[in-house]
Amino acid sequence: MFLGTFTPKLDEKGRLIFPAKFRDELASGLVMTRGQEHCIAVYPLMEFRQKLEEARRAPTTDRRTRDYLRVLLSGAEDVIPDKQGRITIPGHLRTYAGLDRECAVIGALDRLEIWALPAWEAYLEQKEEGFAETSEEVIPGLF
């Protein structure tokens, strides 16, 4: 499970060091791909494989399924972090997420998300008030 917000910096080669608390879970491999709202979604390899098995059950005759899988998988990169917990984020994903030096890595339950820090701060500012004002169930049966 991934929780929290961290603000590592990209180095000049596009490398990012994951927070120590996540390294063990990602050490055997991960998949990075396009996430919603122009972030990078990072899944442990086994979690991503499970998502793909679920996706195989979706009808490929449905255009929405094809479109979603094309965008998701065409941007996917499988990576094994080095011994320092460092990964290189490919140029196409850095461009997609608008990453520069300042980043936010946020825990999102089954995945991490990598955001350009200004984009994350703007997103959070926009969504926090709605979060505070929520008075009905957001996720039916849970919250």
Results as ranks from 00 to 15, higher is better:
E37Y: 07
R34Y: 14
L52G: 09
G29K: 12
V42Q: 03
G35P: 04
E47W: 01
Y43T: 02
F18P: 02
L30H: 11
R23A: 10
F22V: 00
C39F: 09
S28T: 14
R23Y: 08
A27Q: 13
R49L: 04
T33W: 00
E53Y: 04
E53A: 05
Q36V: 03
T33C: 11
H38C: 12
Q50V: 05
S28Y: 03
A27L: 10
F22K: 01
D24P: 02
I40C: 03
E53L: 05
L30R: 08
E53T: 07
L52T: 11
Q36N: 09
E53R: 13
A27G: 02
A20H: 10
F48R: 02
M32W: 01
L30K: 09
Q50G: 10
M46S: 09
V31A: 08
F22A: 00
I17M: 08
M46C: 00
I40T: 07
L30F: 04
A20R: 12
A27D: 10
L52Y: 07
R49S: 11
E37P: 08
Q50C: 01
G29I: 10
P19M: 09
I40A: 03
F48A: 01
M32L: 15
L45V: 09
H38W: 06
D24N: 15
P44K: 08
P19K: 08
Y43G: 02
S28H: 14
L52M: 15
H38L: 12
A41N: 13
L30A: 03
I17S: 09
E53H: 09
R34T: 11
C39K: 07
G35R: 05
A27E: 14
Y43F: 15
F18K: 04
V31D: 07
E53W: 03
A27F: 13
S28R: 14
I17G: 00
L30W: 05
E37Q: 13
K51M: 13
Q50K: 15
G29M: 10
R23W: 13
E54C: 01
T33R: 15
E47P: 00
G35W: 02
F22M: 02
